[in-house]
């Protein structure tokens, strides 16, 4: 009974081990590809750049991707996942700013046009009539609107620590590192924890089995002793 349970646990364990080794291989290939690209980036470094390394780290860096941990209900092991909260947070805050600015420009433009119009209807007509004007303005001086989002990106993307025009190998290295961190590492950690939990369970079952075997042996000895006693009588 318990042997069957141990076998099924070990079967699960071996499946996890298989996935673990596959992920390990993936991580190895991604890492070696990353080191290769980083070495190429350093070899063809721009003038003034000594080495793409810790000299350029931003001392106020903020993580752009964060861990999300959930506990699975069946074996209470953690499941790790990497999420990007900043992308979701930055966009909503950016949008209101832009719309506010648009509204302001609309009001400014509208005031000039609608001096003779009624105050109540002017608001509506302002927004309708002056709607195309900010667009045309945007086309003319689109430089004003564009730098905003790029500034956001600059502060977020660690690639920017190393300059504005980073070499292609460095960007390739970043892509490799991202894949490793987003796809492989959280899964590896999850599997490692699941394996730990299974190891505990297997050990527990083995102990139970050993105890049961001992008790069985004791019972057999008792039975034999009783039989011997009966024969002697």
């Amino acid at each position: 009974m318990s042997t069957e349970k141990i076998d099924s646990l070990l079967q699960q364990y071996l499946l996890l081990l298989n996935e673990y080794t596959t992920l390990r291989n993936n991580l190895n290939t991604l890492q070696s590809s990353f080191y290769h690209h980083l070495a190429r980036a350093n070899f063809s470094a721009q003038p003034g750049v000594r080495y793409y390394g810790q000299d350029y780290y931003d001392e106020r860096m903020q993580a752009t991707s964060r861990l999300e941990t959930t506990i699975s209900e069946d074996n209470s092991t953690p499941e790790f996942k990497l999420v990007k909260p900043s992308a979701a947070k930055v966009n909503p805050t950016e949008k209101p700013e832009n719309t506010e600015k648009k509204q302001n420009s609309q009001e400014e433009g509208g005031d000039v046009k609608s001096i003779s119009e009624d105050a109540s209807s002017s608001d509506q007509t302002q927004s309708e009539a002056s709607a195309p004007s900010p667009d045309s303005k945007k086309d003319q001086d689109g430089d004003e609107a564009k730098p905003k989002p790029t500034e956001k990106k600059k502060s977020n993307d660690p690639l920017r620590w190393f300059g504005i025009l980073t070499p292609l190998p460095l960007r390739q290295a970043q892509a490799d590192a991202k894949r490793a961190v987003e796809d492989v590492i959280p899964r590896l950690a999850t599997i490692s924890e699941q394996m730990k939990a299974l190891e505990l369970e297997v050990r527990r079952e083995r102990k139970k089995r050993a105890k049961a075997e001992k008790e069985e042996a004791k019972l057999k000895i008792k039975e034999l002793e009783e039989k011997v006693a009966a024969v002697e009588v």
Binding site: Y52, A63, P158, A177, K178
Partner: peptide, 28 residues
């Protein structure tokens, strides 16, 4: 125990740390 654990930490040589920070996990 796990609710607030949202960062990865790295102890490594310069290239390894650079890679992981490039992936966006660095946090001060």
């Amino acid at each position: 125990d796990y609710k607030d654990r949202q960062f990865l930490a790295v102890i490594g040589d310069e290239d390894s740390v650079t890679g992981l920070l490039l992936a966006g996990i660095g946090h001060v």
